[in-house]
Every structure is written in C-alpha cells, then in structure tokens.
Design a protein around this nucleic acid. Structure first.
Length: 117
DNA sequence: GAAATGACGCGTT
DNA sequence: GAACGCGCCATTT
C-alpha cells in the first residue's frame, strides 16, 4: 500500500515514545525523535502532533529543547498546553518549563520518570 | 523537479 | 537570557 507518510513504523514509534512520557513529566521534540530511534527528525514529531487525531495523546507534554512551549505566547494552543501542564503539576513560568539542559543519561531517567526511575 | 512552509535544534552574536 | 542565522527533515504547492 502506498506510503502516505515517510514511514508508518517511524510515526508509530514516535507516537509510542510520546505515550511513554509519564504524568507530570515533559520531553523535547528531538528527545522524542531520538527515543523513537529517529535522530534528527524532530520536525517529523512536530508534524505528527500537528496532524494528530488522537485526543489520548499527551501532546501537551512535548516542548522545545529549550523547555519552551512550541506555540506562540499569544496563541490559543500555548495557553491550552500551559494549562494542561499545570494541571499535571508541571511548573510553567512565562511560557517556560523547568527543563534540564544537560541531558545526562542518568538524569534522563529522572526526566521521564520523576516518580520512579 | 524546484520552491516554500512548519508545534525544531544548535551555535553565534 | 534574547535575538539572529543556518541546517535538517517531511509535506505541500
């Protein structure tokens, strides 16, 4: 069958990685792509979220590498995402989220699982 | 097939 | 920390 996307399996892996983010945790586009086994495809993650039809997908947990919300500060999506993050206990200040710049593999676990890991 | 667009990332200023 | 520029990937025109 014709491949409407670049790689259906790749998309599935990305979605799986996003779903793998626990409640109260956040991750970056590049980080998700990397976890999905697709380094450098951060934009592909964004594209999937932009066209996601899955309301159960925790898209609000996906932020930029700087820890900032991808949407413009005046955008509705930005407000929606910030609201949802706060509802999960994530501290959002000035459209910014506490994000560890040094992603050590050991600390990486803490990023994904603040409760466990 | 080339140019333009987009929920990105990183280095530099 | 903010602003600017360049690079990368995938889809659309």
């Amino acid at each position: 069958m014709a491949a409407l996307s670049a790689d259906a399996s790749a998309a599935a892996r990305i979605l799986a990685a996003i779903r793998d983010v626990p409640h109260g945790a956040v991750a970056g586009y590049g980080q998700i792509a990397r976890r999905a086994g697709l380094p450098g495809r951060a934009r592909m993650v964004a594209r999937l979220l932009a066209g996601n039809d899955d309301p159960t997908l925790p898209w609000h947990r996906i932020l930029r590498s700087d820890g900032r919300i991808a949407f413009p500060p005046a955008s509705k999506g930005h407000r929606e995402q910030a609201r949802r993050l706060r509802a999960e206990g994530v501290v959002v200040a000035n459209g910014r989220v506490r994000m560890p710049r040094s992603d050590h593999e050991d600390l990486d676990a803490a990023l994904w699982g603040p409760e466990g890991a």
